[in-house]
């Protein structure tokens, strides 16, 4: 446990030691605001809810979370510090968890900075708090899932650009898997209904949407946790076998 904390602390410090953290946070908040107010038409909606806010999260995270995750391991490989890290008396799992938790906490911090949004809504009207809380929970879990996937692609390469592009594509699939263009394509290719349904169930949208409505279904939680654990487990195997 202590080793995980030490690794996480170092990782978090390195975000804030470089401009990366500040640039990310500013861009994150600007885009959140832009999409909610300009694209989503928050005021025109005239409703005391965060629907127009949460609806953009899967799309924004698709681009922004890989930007945080791409450096997790690619940077260590490029700087050769991977060799330093893995010859210290820690396990690969501890290193992975430490770095992952640091990234997730950082994303959580970014999400917390959007709290003026719900506060504004509460000030302007009488919103239902339940969907707001579960929406934030879903958003945080979704960021965690994307981050785990970005970490996985990051462990495969020393090149951050490759890591970024690959994880954006995977995250895009996870967003789009339930959409008609994809499901229709699968049907056209002769996939069975069950397979199409399975693909649609892989979509984060499917699971995030119910959380936005204020429903915390155990199946949605299982989905996000499974996705995260699967990605971290695969990262572990990659880092153990593919080091030089």
């Amino acid at each position: 446990m202590k080793n995980i904390a030490v690794i996480a602390k170092r990782e978090l410090a390195s975000y804030f030691n470089s401009p990366v953290a500040y640039v990310f946070l500013i861009i994150f908040l600007i885009l959140m605001g832009f999409f909610t107010f300009m694209m989503g038409g928050f005021f025109q909606y005239n409703e005391a809810a965060l629907t127009t806010f949460f609806i953009w999260h899967p799309w924004l995270y698709m681009l922004l979370v890989p930007a945080v995750g791409m450096r997790l391991w690619a940077e260590e490989r490029r700087m050769r510090t991977l060799e330093l890290l893995f010859t210290m008396p820690i396990t690969t799992t501890q290193a992975i968890l430490g770095k992952y938790i640091a990234g997730w906490l950082f994303l959580g911090f970014a999400i917390l900075l959007t709290l003026p949004m719900p506060i504004t809504v509460c000030y302007l009207g009488e919103p239902d708090l339940g969907p707001m809380v579960t929406g934030y929970l879903g958003s945080f879990l979704m960021a965690g899932a994307y981050l785990a996937i970005s970490g996985l692609t990051s462990s495969l390469t020393r090149n951050q650009v490759i890591s970024f592009i690959t994880s954006v594509v995977i995250c895009m699939f996870l967003v789009l898997a339930g959409y008609p263009p994809i499901t229709n394509l699968l049907l056209k290719w002769g996939a069975s209904n069950r397979l199409v349904e399975f693909a649609a169930n892989l979509s984060v949208m499917f699971h995030f949407e119910s959380m936005q409505r204020g429903v915390v279904d155990i199946r949605d939680l299982v989905y996000f946790v499974t996705l995260i654990l699967f990605a971290l487990f695969t990262t572990n195997i990659i880092l153990k076998t593919h080091r030089s």
Binding site: R10, S14, N17, S18, M79, R80, T81, E83, L84, T87
Partner: peptide, 10 residues
């Protein structure tokens, strides 16, 4: 290690 790696941002 060879080439003496270190976390350069620290």
């Amino acid at each position: 290690p060879e080439n003496a790696p270190a976390y350069t941002d620290m």
